[in-house]
Design a protein around this nucleic acid. Structure first.
Length: 489
RNA sequence: GGCGCCGUAGCCAAGUGGUAAGGCAGAGGACUGCAAAUCCUUUAUGCGGCGGUUCGAAUCCGCCCGGCGCCUCCA
């Protein structure tokens, strides 16, 4: 088995993923704040995490995978807001889209459910636990109390703050170590005169007007953003994690603050390996919710794009490099997905059932081994996908597969899907409604065209194909009749 | 100011010292009533520029040019 190696932000080098318990990976990935629909950039991060889980599993490891949902405490910056900005959830409720919701809990539930739908459509593995900040209030309050008791936090008239100066190693992850740059990083608008130092960050906000509030030793209020991850990761993974992932923007302050809180509280190393996913750009431009130039998963799927093609296009550039999403890249990915499906069809045509196991021949085994090796090499998805295509081509060379070839192909598809997650998900096709062209269902038109072809009336057959083509439907004649598919634009 | 990333064919992109993977698009061919799909063949004397190290550099070093990200709104 190859060694699983990933880039580690803190040591700035690629190093082996080490587990405390042999063969058991404790993995935490920072999830979304559910104030809106997640966009494809969010999912680039979650797909990278998914690939960590799949690769570890392929190596035979057990993975305890925790990915949270932030539904309170994540502040937005706003020029008119007072210290600390505004809670993103509250802001969303006040927006135009927020009118659709009865209250903030309803809004949180809606976007969290939508997030999980998108997650499933993209064939992401279920986390072992998907904790929510609002459901772990006790753990957060206890953690804050612990930090106060140890002198790492203090109460002010507006909240409880972490005392950055009490943790010598603050800045070890991001490199933001010197006080001058920390000072400069603090915007004037978030100053709270009661803080001892501008870099101190909120653990608890006192606010009896907040739409989500809890009673604490410091009165009514709500937790700061960073404490939830420290509290929840400790609850489910213990004091020390093996691997922690998130988007590159989280390096500072979020993960830096998590380290400070957790290590001060537990007196143990928080995490030995940090993985950060580079931002996704769209058509060469930065994508951000605030910029409004983002695609959501549901936008693209509603337009008829295939979820597996979207997944593949989002993972085709390795996570550590900036990726550029374009409609062309989505189309390119679709061609690859169709090749996998073509292999699947040929396997079925050879009489191998979906539930059959299959055995690889040596060539197939070799290609798979190389694919796994690429994934172990810091998730080199570019090479792994090339290997997946190489494997598919082994079975597309001959039009009919022998039984042993088909068994080999079956094995390869299974293994490739388990590792890359891009073969499955074909079931979604059948959910698409049958299109109607000129008032007639497509199946009737296909039938009519088949009859025209049978009587060698090719002009009529071509006229029908032309008609549905202009309606955006493509017809493909195959050995088992004619299939239709929506053309992707 | 601090921290970090990238520049490889028309496009996406692998390769980090031994003589340029893979995909898309393009070209030719097989197959097909015609298409589509699939298969086969083909497409970079060169890896932003200039120097240097080396028997040998896309790969290491230096400088320059260009693009990008984070630094209390973002995954």
């Amino acid at each position: 088995m190859p060694t699983f190696r990933l880039y580690d932000t803190q040591s700035r080098s690629v190093k082996p993923v080490e587990t405390q318990e042999p063969g058991h990976l404790k993995f935490y990935c920072c999830g979304p704040t559910v104030y809106s629909y997640a966009h494809i950039g969010n999912f680039r991060t979650f797909i990278a995490s998914d690939l960590v889980v799949r690769t570890a599993t392929a190596l035979g490891w057990r993975v305890t995978y925790v990915s949270n949902i932030t539904d309170v405490g994540h502040m937005t910056q706003d020029d008119v807001a007072d210290a600390g900005g505004e809670d993103k959830m509250e802001k969303a409720l006040k927006s135009k889209e927020g009118d659709a919701f009865a209250n903030i809990w309803d809004l949180a539930r809606h976007y969290a459910d939508a997030f999980e739908d998108d997650w499933n459509r993209l064939n992401l593995q279920q986390p072992t636990v998907r904790p929510r900040a609002t459901e772990h209030m006790r753990e957060q309050i206890v953690a804050i109390q612990g930090l106060i008791e140890e002198g790492h936090a203090y109460e002010t008239p507006t909240g409880v703050y972490f005392r950055v100066s009490s943790f010598d190693e603050y800045g070890k992850l991001s490199g933001n170590r010197d006080q001058d740059s920390l000072m400069r990083a603090v915007r004037a608008v978030v100053q709270d005169d009661n803080k001892e130092h501008p870099a101190d960050f909120a653990l608890w906000k006192k606010d009896d007007k907040h739409l989500m509030q809890w009673f604490s030793p410091w009165g009514w209020g709500f937790p700061g953003w960073h404490i939830e991850c420290s509290a929840m990761s400790r609850t489910y993974l213990g004091d020390t994690l093996d691997l922690h992932a998130g988007g590159e923007d989280l390096v500072f302050p979020h993960h830096e603050c998590e380290i400070a809180q957790s290590e001060c509280l537990t007196h143990s190393p928080f995490c030995g390996h940090w993985m950060h996913v580079r931002f996704l750009q769209v058509d060469g431009e930065k994508m951000a919710k605030s910029a409004g130039n983002f695609y959501t998963v549901r936008d693209l799927l509603e337009k008829g794009h295939d979820p597996m093609a979207l997944r593949l296009s989002l993972m085709s550039t390795p996570y550590g490099k900036p990726a550029n999403f374009t409609m062309q890249s989505l189309k390119d990915a679709m061609s690859t997905i169709e090749r996998f499906r073509e292999v699947e069809k040929r396997v079925r045509a050879a009489g191998i059932s979906e539930s059959a196991d299959g055995e690889p021949d040596t060539e197939t085994q070799r290609v798979y081994d190389e694919m796994l090796e690429a994934m172990c090499d810091d998730l080199n998805t570019s090479v792994a996908i090339a290997k997946a295509i190489e494997g598919a081509r082994l079975f597309l060379r001959d039009s009919d597969l022998t039984t042993s070839q088909a068994q080999s192909a079956q094995w390869f598809l299974r293994k490739t899907d388990a590792l890359l997650g891009v073969v499955g998900g074909t079931a979604t096709e059948s959910l698409v409604e049958e299109p109607v062209v000129e008032g007639r269902p497509i199946s009737a038109l296909i039938q009519e065209r088949a009859e025209a072809k049978a009587s060698r009336d090719f002009a009529q057959a071509d006229a029908i194909r032309q008609m549905v083509d202009s309606a955006g439907i493509e017809l493909r004649d195959g050995p088992n009749g004619t299939e239709w598919r929506r053309k992707v634009t």
